[in-house]
């Protein structure tokens, strides 16, 4: 226990006072703003550009108990060349798997430049001793994961024990070494937008490179207004500290239309600086094929069908 616990960066009371001193979020207003941005109409050249950007931002994900090396290799092939019939399609940002399959993915993606992201820290519930969580992280990093997607201890957060959450993130941060750290807030369990804003700041302050909405195992997963609140958080955090943190909505993003709405949200909330795979990712599995299908509609002028894209 002793070696695994990093003392909190500030006193527990100070941390609590800081988080509770953040401006509140009015749910109705945030929902309304997100809904209004969702009415933006993205056409023609802008749409083509946005689809390619969205593809390049995808963290292509498989997180099933039934995952096998074969399944992961297939996904990696898809990641490197999403549309075998069209080489102009960019590769995705990363492949996201469980920690025990990192090695398979790293080998499959060798030479492609695509990173491997691994969920860790007793994903998805986060209910394990810290030592086990850190061992999980170290194993993934040792197997070659370039990115670690950790989950926070929602129980501790909801109990107001922010210092524990903070200490855990800092410990994972250290265990990551050079790997990027994405901190999953599991906003579906945090419920209120005030909590989402507080958890975002807590994670950023503890060293997150990305803040991520969801595991995909809890409903609701990513939503536009939750992502809006997180984009406001990274925007404000940069203004306050100069450090830029990325955002990753994950789960429930299935269509091109959805993906474009997220890009609009990024563009008009955090700003165009965030419109890069370095700072914005879409955690998804089925989204990619819809992006490919819409892309082909734009290039060929006719509607395509699912049989023309690979199921991986």
């Amino acid at each position: 226990m002793s070696t695994e616990t990093v003392p909190p960066g500030r006193g527990a009371a100070g941390l609590r006072a800081f988080l509770h001193g953040l401006p509140g979020v009015d749910r109705v207003g945030a929902d309304e703003r997100a809904a209004r941005l969702a009415t933006r109409s993205i056409k023609t050249t802008a749409k083509a550009q946005a689809i390619d950007l969205a593809i390049a931002m995808v963290d292509l994900t498989t997180l099933e108990g039934a995952d096998t090396p074969g399944k992961v290799r297939a996904l990696c092939a898809k990641a490197a060349r999403p549309d075998p019939e069209d080489r102009s399609v960019p590769p995705v940002a990363a492949v996201c798997v469980y920690s025990d399959l990192v090695g398979v993915a790293v080998e499959a993606l060798d030479g492609t430049g695509i990173g491997v992201a691994s969920v860790a820290t007793a994903f998805p519930s986060g209910r394990a001793p810290l030592a086990a969580k850190l061992a999980d992280v170290r194993a993934a990093v040792a197997a070659g994961a370039a990115e670690i997607d950790m989950v926070i201890d929602r129980g501790a957060f909801l109990a107001g024990d922010y210092a524990t959450v903070d200490a855990e993130i800092r410990a994972v941060r250290e265990a990551c070494g050079d790997a990027h750290l994405k901190v999953i807030l599991e906003t579906g369990e945090l419920v209120t937008y005030d909590n989402v804003r507080r958890a975002s700041w807590l994670a950023m302050d503890a060293g997150a490179d990305f803040i991520k909405t969801s595991t995909g195992k809890v409903s609701p997963a990513a939503t536009l207004p939750v992502t809006l609140v997180m984009l406001e958080a990274v925007r404000d955090y940069r203004a306050a500290t100069g450090r830029t943190v990325g955002v990753k909505p994950a789960g429930g993003i299935r269509t091109t239309k959805d993906a474009l709405k997220y890009l609009v949200l990024v563009n008009e909330t955090a700003g165009p600086d965030w419109l890069t795979p370095d700072l914005f990712r879409l955690g998804a599995s089925s989204l990619l094929n819809d992006l490919l299908m819409q892309r082909r509609k734009l290039t060929t002028g006719v509607y395509s069908g699912p049989d023309h894209f690979t199921l991986d």
Binding site: V28, G29, T192
Partner: peptide
């Protein structure tokens, strides 16, 4: 007659 509006949300 004064009409007051307030959002309802958590």
């Amino acid at each position: 007659i004064k009409t007051v509006w307030h959002p309802v949300g958590v």
